[in-house]
Design a protein around this nucleic acid. Structure first.
Length: 1046
RNA sequence: AGGCCGGUAGCUCAGCUGGUUAGAGCGCGCCCCUGAUAAGGGCGAGGUCGGAAGUUCAAGUCUUCUUCGGCCUACCA
């Protein structure tokens, strides 16, 4: 709460105190309470907090016992069966990968989800959480392969179905382990029936989803270069590749210039007319640009090139270390940032070999690299004729004129601008074979429009088969030649392809130079043989054919994001992403259950596709993915299948997990079709959030979620990435063992999960301290509420102002809490409740009420009111904290309400009666608190001077003006004694925990004096308060003792 | 290298649309209590808001640059 800084002009100063101290002995005679040896020990007449609830939790041992109890109770089932008045609210679990132990990231993820689920449940929903696992995929495939290898069996020797069965076992093994680890964190959910991507029902539904996408024409077959090992005849992932030295034949190849087209020439002319474009103002520049665009839009307009291109015999030179890719060349890439020159060969070096160029040849190369090229080509001297702007040039393929070309190389080779081109090595021009390189492929496909404008077929040629041999789209003389030897002693060395290509280049006169060099290149980590990049047929989901991108973008608009910036990130990614490549050439995954006719048609285009699909899905549902792989196509087609081929690729695992909404949410009767929330780490923008969105939009036209929340990453105490190899990893298991899962839960609740979450010793210690504070606060209430029953309750109207104030605070908190639960803002909930416990309760309310609680007559209204309010606090604090501290709140709850089958986790959040709102008291209390702070200041000053020790020794006098309004509002008096000792009501001194506080008209200063030195004041043997009067205890205490004795 | 995001006291966090001497709790130091006691209470010392420049009468809050860190750009999940 905000305490307004109400200024008091009468603040005490140290100097004033110093003089006070001198005055005290003069004003009062010391009077000691006479030490009667027969004095009664009043301790037994006090009502001290009474509880067995231990101060120390022993969480590591206690937590498993609570888990056991909840299991026995079937807490999960009871929550489902509860009233749950607000209906379903569902957080759909993103599946962790079933491999390895859980770590800090998965811990954060599951705990955060659990806090949210439990909160929504207690807010009145049926928050049914069904955890799941991602089971297919390469990492498991690797592990299983390794296992077989250890037993001396290579993957090729193991029947596919046996291999998959082992993968299945392996995944199941880790699902069990992770399940136990997640449960240990206190996460509640349907652990008995989680979803698994590898359950046959799931696999069948994944296939069904894919077939739906195929049936709606969103699936197509394209191609893409991938890492391929011809020796193992398998695709490789980046992680399966290691880089090692390879001896390579490097060649410089000439591409004769065929022509120059439209745009570049015209643009150049305009530049020449306009002159230095830097001198143009904005409008002029805009006009020039528009003119250039206008001219260049006239497609197919042929022009002969610039003045230096008048009489042919010009070549662009490229450099490559993979000569066998030359037949697949379709373009040459250049960079607009590189300066190119045209060089005429003047004189050749003397050499025993006949060089492949001669004086008069005109070569185009990056200026920075000319020297290197000349040296390689044995060119002694040359002259630079002119600058070259490569834009718009069109070349001949260097093999155009080879013998037996079958006319297969008579096509234009365009120049394309590519950001991958540098002048570091080679010639500044990059030979571009779209089927054999990632960059090549990107440049080629991203220039589709331009290619079509030039009348060039943009298809990516498939020049190699699985064994790495030239296919039959090549001229006969190349067909069947191998790039790499796949067997025999020379396995892994160059095959026949390079040699034949070199021979053909020489025939055509387009080989400028050749050499040998050693370079680091990709090798398979298994066979150690070189890896090639090779285009293979792949399956894609189109982002545009059925408007998938638009649907996804619209769905994002309708989704709520936490934090809001997550929306921006997801939408830019979806807006920019290419078509979804979903096929993988792997073993452990869900098959792409398609059959392709030899003419290219898909079975899904057939009239009887429904029946075929039904047979496929039945087979997969029965036998899992083996049902597809091990069944002949004719069974599915219901006829002779000789013209049909079954696809053996599997699906990208992201497609699997993108289908969880289909085979979990939509299949289960106890879950809604769409989730209220998906919650994962921010890396899932490109992962699950996106795959789920795309899959769902492709099939259902809407997002599978209404809301998306992202967590940051767990980093070390310095904000640095965590890792085993970095040595800064924190393990959840260690924290569990040493402190308990509750501490991890507090860590999550107290962290800003939208940013990266730091963790380290100090942070853990902070949470351990917070835990102790909360535990003790609850423990105190349990003790104070010992024996309390509803019959003891005091009605609101009969309560002292202090109790009404606490209820007001509870009312405020109830409203805030409601909003924060709806907004999943648990950091705010935790920090607010923690501050409430320390500031409002421990140091204010409890501290003040200790006296009444311990010393008031047992059934005095004040004491009963205090316990009434404590009960209300208890009921709220425990339920509010239960989603976070699920173990301790249960322990606390059971300590007060022991039962066989009860649980705090079956409670719902309580509303606050409207009457609790009491703004007048809230404002008055703010004034009192400010006054209290300043009184404490003054007391502290005296304490430092050694005048007083306990604050009960103090008497305070202050100006009447400063508190009159507040006191009137709170019904306080500044009398020292209670009007009715048997039923005391508050006096001002109680709020300050002093024995006397008097407001006087004539005092401008706040004065603190020492009562133990004051004449006529006695220390009460029971309440330790100083009082004036007869006997050894105050009248209030006397009344209490009488009641106790009576 | 590019895209996106973040950097407020030792720690965890507040600081709305720019506006008085930047807040809280914890921790720390000192003190009190010994009837919440491996607890409880009080007081106090700690940041100029990663750094620099700029816009403005005024910037933690806007702009630019810079630095540090994170995520993403994989046939990893």
């Amino acid at each position: 709460m905000a305490r307004s800084a109400k200024p008091y002009s009468n603040r005490v100063t140290v100097r004033e105190h110093a003089s006070l101290r001198l005055q005290i002995p003069l004003l009062y005679e010391t009077s000691m309470t006479d030490s009667n040896s027969t004095a009664r020990d009043y301790r037994e007449t006090l009502f001290l907090p009474k509880t067995d609830f231990p101060m120390r939790a022993g969480l590591p041992k206690a937590e498993p016992k609570w888990l056991e109890r909840w299991d026995k109770l079937d807490l999960y089932g009871k929550q489902r069966a509860a009233e749950n008045a607000k209906g379903q609210w569902t957080l759909h679990d993103g599946p962790p990968y079933a491999n390895g132990h859980i770590h800090m990231g998965t811990t954060l993820n599951k705990v955060h989800k659990d806090i949210i689920n439990r909160s929504q449940q207690m807010a009145g929903h049926n928050a049914n959480y069904v955890p799941g696992w991602d089971c297919h995929g390469l990492p498991i495939e690797w592990k299983v392969e390794e296992e077989f290898r250890a037993k001396g069996r290579s993957k090729d020797d193991v029947p596919a179905s046996e291999f998959r069965a082992r993968c299945r076992e392996y995944a199941a093994h880790w699902v069990d382990i992770q399940k136990a680890e997640f449960k240990r964190l206190g996460v509640i959910g349907d652990w008995e029936n989680p979803y698994l991507t590898m359950r046959p029902e799931s696999e069948a539904r994944i296939c069904a989803e894919l077939l739906k996408i195929a049936r709606t024409g969103q699936l197509y077959r394209g191609s893409k270069p991938i890492m391929w090992s011809p020796v193992e005849q398998t695709a490789l992932a980046e992680a399966e590749v290691e880089y090692a030295d390879r001896r390579a034949t490097a060649i410089y190849v000439k591409f004769p210039v065929r022509e120059r087209r439209g745009r570049a020439v015209d643009a150049n002319i305009i530049d020449k007319i306009v002159g230095n474009s830097e001198s143009l103002d904005q409008d002029e520049q805009g006009y020039v640009d528009a003119l250039k665009n206008f001219i260049s839009s006239g497609q197919g307009q042929m022009e002969t090139g610039g003045e230096f291109l008048q009489d042919a015999e010009f070549s662009i030179v490229i450099w490559t270390t993979t000569p066998w890719t030359i037949p697949a060349n379709r373009a040459v890439s250049y960079s607009a940032k590189i300066k190119y020159g045209l060089y005429e060969v003047v004189e050749m070096e003397e050499s025993e070999f006949e060089p492949w160029s001669k004086p008069g040849d005109k070569l185009m190369v990056a200026d920075d690299l000319w020297t290197t090229v000349a040296k390689a080509g044995l060119i002694k001297s040359a002259k630079r004729l002119d600058d070259v702007n490569p834009e718009g040039l069109v070349l001949d393929h260097p093999l155009k004129n080879m013998t037996d070309s079958e006319g297969k190389y008579d096509f234009p080779v365009p120049l394309l601008e590519g950001s991958h081109v540098t002048a570091d090595a080679g010639t500044g021009f990059v030979h571009t074979a779209p089927s054999h390189g990632e960059d090549d492929y990107i440049v080629w496909t991203s220039n589709q429009m331009k290619l079509e404008g030039l009348g060039i077929d943009p298809v990516v040629p498939m020049t190699l088969d699985d064994k790495g041999c030239y296919t039959d789209i090549m001229p006969t003389r190349f067909q069947g030649l191998d790039v790499i030897r796949t067997s025999g002693k020379k396995r892994g060395q160059d095959g026949k392809a390079n040699g034949e290509v070199l021979k053909a280049l020489v025939e055509c006169g387009n080989l400028l130079a050749r050499g040998v060099l050693t370079l680091r290149d990709a090798h398979s980590w298994r066979s150690k043989a070189p890896v090639i990049r090779r285009a293979t047929p792949q399956w894609f989901i189109s982002m545009s054919k059925a408007g998938l991108r638009d649907k996804a973008m619209a769905a994002i608009e309708e989704t709520q994001f936490w934090p809001p910036r997550a929306k921006n990130r997801l939408s830019t990614m979806v807006a920019d992403r290419p078509d979804w490549l979903i096929s993988r050439q792997r073993a452990w995954g869900v098959p792409i259950t398609l059959m392709v006719h030899k003419d290219g048609a898909l079975h899904t285009e057939r009239a009887d596709a429904d029946a075929i699909d039904a047979r496929i899905l039945a087979a997969v549902e029965k036998d899992g993915v083996d049902g597809w792989f091990d069944t002949d196509a004719s069974v599915f087609l219901g006829e002779d299948a000789s013209d049909w081929e079954k696809v053996t690729d599997i699906l990208d695992v992201w497609f699997d997990s993108g289908c969880t909404h289909a085979f979990c949410l939509k299949e289960r009767d106890d879950l809604p079709d769409r989730a209220d929330l998906y919650l994962e780490g921010s890396d899932q923008h490109r992962g699950w959030f996106q795959s789920s969105l795309l899959e769902s939009c492709a099939v259902y036209g809407e997002a599978p979620y209404k809301g998306v929340m992202t967590d940051g990453f767990v980093v070390d105490k310095n904000g640095m990435k965590m890792g085993k190899s970095l040595g800064n990893a924190v393990s959840p298991e260690d924290i569990n063992k040493q402190y308990g899962a509750e501490i991890l839960r507090l860590w999550v609740a107290s962290s800003d999960t939208t940013n990266d979450l730091k963790i380290g010793d100090e942070i853990i210690k902070t949470n351990v301290d917070a835990y102790r504070k909360l535990r003790n606060t609850l423990r105190y209430m349990i003790g104070a509420l010992d024996g309390y029953s509803d019959a003891d309750a005091v009605s609101y109207d009969d309560m002292p102002a202090l109790e009404k104030w606490v209820l007001h605070r509870l009312s405020d908190l109830t409203e805030q809490h409601k909003g924060w639960v709806a907004d999943h803002d648990h950091k705010r909930i935790f920090s607010t409740l923690f501050n409430f416990c320390t500031t409002d309760l421990s140091s204010f309310y409890f501290d003040i009420r200790k006296d009444a609680l311990y010393c008031d007559p047992l059934d005095s209204t004040r004491r009963r009111a205090c316990r009434t309010v404590m009960n209300e606090i208890f009921l709220r604090l425990t339920t509010w904290l239960a989603p976070i501290m699920c173990f301790t709140m249960e322990e606390v709850w059971q300590a007060r309400f022991p039962s066989e089958d009860g649980s705090v986790h079956l409670e719902v959040f309580r509303d606050a009666p409207a009457a609790w709102q009491n703004q007048a008291i809230a404002e008055a209390m703010t004034g009192i608190q400010t006054f209290r702070d300043q009184a404490f200041d003054s007391i502290e000053t005296l304490r430092r001077e050694g005048v007083i020790k306990s604050s009960l020794e103090a008497s305070i006098r202050a100006s009447k003006s400063c508190l009159s309004d507040e006191m009137a509002a709170l019904g306080l008096t500044d009398a020292t004694d209670y009007t009715d000792p048997a039923n005391p009501s508050d006096v001002l001194a109680d709020y300050l925990i002093v024995s006397k506080c008097q407001l006087s008209v004539d005092s401008d200063d706040m004065l603190v004096t020492d009562l133990k030195a004051a004449k006529g004041w006695t220390k009460c043997d029971r309440s330790w308060k100083y009082f004036q009067g007869e006997g050894d205890i105050t009248p209030r205490d006397a009344a209490a003792v009488a009641a106790f004795d009576g």
